[in-house]
């Protein structure tokens, strides 16, 4: 080994002078996500969002505890007898709060549907798609309700509420889009005049 070689060998670290692209880790992390998407990962959530989430979570917990206490205070025999009647069980007897929420949401949904009807969409593709989606949600809701009769838990209840919220969101979006279109039409009319 000559001096040249010795010099290189003894200065090995100096040959590691180049830096990889800063974004390379992002690429690797993205590929890792593809491979193991279900891993527990720490995602940064903005602090305001965190507060919102905490508030919602707390409200939900309080709600659940309330329901639980109420449920326990009910005459279980009576409840079970009613459940055994199966089929069209009334929510009011078991979960009055949920029944109330259901009524409220149903009212909202009906109101939005009426509003939507004003746009004369009957027979259009948009209309049939919306209806299809809503009826799917309705079916899912009924399944959840059945599930609640046999296996009452918080998850089922929150899923039911979410189902109702999705319907309202869907209708709201539709209405929003239709309003936008109408606005544009109005503007164009204005221009022509």
């Amino acid at each position: 080994m000559d001096k040249f070689e010795k010099y290189i060998r003894s200065h090995k670290e100096a040959f590691d002078s180049e830096e990889p692209n800063d974004l390379l880790w992002e690429k690797i992390a993205a590929k890792l996500d593809e491979k193991q998407p279900a891993q527990k990962q720490v995602r940064l959530v903005p602090i305001t969002k965190l507060w919102q989430m905490a508030a919602v979570f707390t409200a939900l917990i309080v709600c659940m505890i309330g329901l639980q206490i109420y449920y326990n205070s009910q005459n279980k025999q009576k409840t079970i007898a009613k459940i055994e009647n199966a089929g069209n069980i009334s929510l009011e007897s078991i979960y009055p709060e949920l029944a109330e929420a259901e009524q409220f949401y149903f009212m909202q949904i009906e109101q939005k549907r009426q509003e939507l009807k004003k746009y004369n969409l009957a027979g259009t593709k948009t209309d049939s798609e919306t209806e299809e989606y809503l009826s799917e949600l309705d079916k899912a809701y009924k399944d959840l309700k059945k599930e609640l009769n046999t296996n009452s838990n918080e998850l089922v209840i929150s899923e039911m509420v979410r189902n109702l919220q999705i319907r309202i969101d869907l209708l709201n979006q539709q209405l929003e889009v239709l309003k936008q279109i109408e606005k544009i039409k109005e503007e164009q009319k204005g221009k022509k005049l």
Partner: peptide, 30 residues
């Protein structure tokens, strides 16, 4: 994932230089 990033931080530079010496091309090395 955090631990994987730790490992990456520790070794990325040295390993990148190994890649660079063998491939002779920055894009290929990455």
């Amino acid at each position: 994932r955090k631990a994987q990033y730790e490992i990456y931080k520790l070794y990325a530079k040295a390993m990148y230089n190994v890649c660079l010496r063998i491939t002779g091309d920055t894009l290929e090395a990455e």
